[in-house]
Amino acid sequence: MPIKVFIPTPLRSYADKQAAVEVDGRDVGEVLERLVAAHPQLKSQLFTPEGKLRSFVNVYLNDEDIRYTGRERTPVKTSDTLSIVPSIAGGAPRAFGREAALLPSSRPAEARC
């Protein structure tokens, strides 16, 4: 039974520029397996070389994070939607105050970290 999988903006170029694709599967794991089988360039964006979901990749079945519903074994039904949502986090180095503020604000072309 196909369910709709929403593809994040930067990954659409690996999924024939589609914002959503219909994928068959009995559970979330099978849907994700078939998604990357149909669009192989998505695989390294979503999974580590060991085959685990990358740490910043959250997968929601409807409104539920699959980490709390059985992970890849969470069963799916036709009316479900699967959303791939990246964790967004970051922050400045641990320097505060005037000294940090006086550092140069940008480099012209490329900031190597």
Binding site: P8, T9, P10, L11, S13, Q45, F56, P86, S87, I88, A89, G90, G91, A92, P93, A95, F96, G97, R98, A100, A101, L103, P104, S105, S106, R107, A111, C113
Partner: peptide, 21 residues
Amino acid sequence: HPDHPARPSQYDLEHAAWPGY
């Protein structure tokens, strides 16, 4: 970046999502 330059930190790099944003 409060009191810090407008350029990515190592932490930003380690926690970035995908290229293309």
